[in-house]
Design a protein around this nucleic acid. Structure first.
Lengths: 138, 138
DNA sequence: TTAAGTGCAAAAATTTTGCATTCTT
DNA sequence: AAGAATGCAAAATTTTTGCACTTAA
């Protein structure tokens, strides 16, 4: 089965790249729909599946219900905000992690790993501080 | 809201513990249903939610569609088989990982992390070897 | 007794699929 | 042309919710 570059596929890729972030299928759908109004969500799912199988994009299964897709396929890890669910990249020394990991792998052939941090992003921290102040002043 | 120990809740906990593994809601449902045939899947979900909020069990969001639940709430990490989707514990030095992680956290307050390995479990390796041999002999 | 918990059925949320039609190559 | 890809609607999967009834404390 050979691949074809359709309008939909191209714009899905472009928009994911342009976003510079980790979009869920329906977020991407909303964006691409502004350009191709008759786009179907199924097309987005089908393309994301195909493109991630080809490693042209990465499929993330981070916290939260929905899967997210990343234009950046390089090995890197993520941190997600437990309050607003945004996802950011986090830079760290992957080799060191691999070294630590080499230990108790119980007969598995390890093909990869995913290190995912959870935390509260700067914006949500600010919001929470404001809320705190409000309550204190009441 | 105070908690009550119902029959359902108790058996859900016991069966999860007895399994010694990381069950999805519906796997647990099947097991508990053998004991309480009129059990509802909704009850399983509600209990797993409540129990994981109380940290009596842990909710895992590992690879694959469904969430999984673990009787073991201690800090430990997981490895899952990309072929059969089973999940096993993996022992490693969490402090070392934290040290590596301290680096590029971009303003986030880190509340935790999840390190999840992917690989092929011993059983699936065996199966794959058998398949390979079969094909070679044909 | 009372309000937490349950079963059931219906809904919500996310993802996948069948099929006729439209495109890329 | 051929068959890959699409749109649409319907289905599948996983999880949540409303509500009347049951049960633990």
């Amino acid at each position: 089965m050979q691949l074809r570059m359709t309008n939909q596929r191209e714009i899905i890729l472009t928009e994911l790249k342009k976003s510079g972030s980790h979009l869920s299928a329906d977020e991407l759908y909303e964006r691409v729909r502004r350009i191709i109004p008759r786009l179907s969500l199924a097309t987005v799912y089908r393309n994301l599946e195909i493109l991630s199988n080809l490693h042209l994009i990465a499929k993330l299964e981070v916290g939260g219900r929905q899967k997210r897709f990343d234009y950046d396929v390089s090995d890197h890890d993520h941190i997600y905000c437990i309050v607003c669910h945004r996802v950011d990249n986090i830079e760290l020394n992957r080799e060191q992690v691999s070294t630590v990991a080499a230990e108790g792998r119980q007969g598995y052939t390890v093909t990869g790993y995913r290190l995912e941090f959870a935390g509260i992003c700067p914006e949500c921290q600010k919001k929470m501080n404001k809320e705190m102040n409000k309550e204190t002043n009441e």
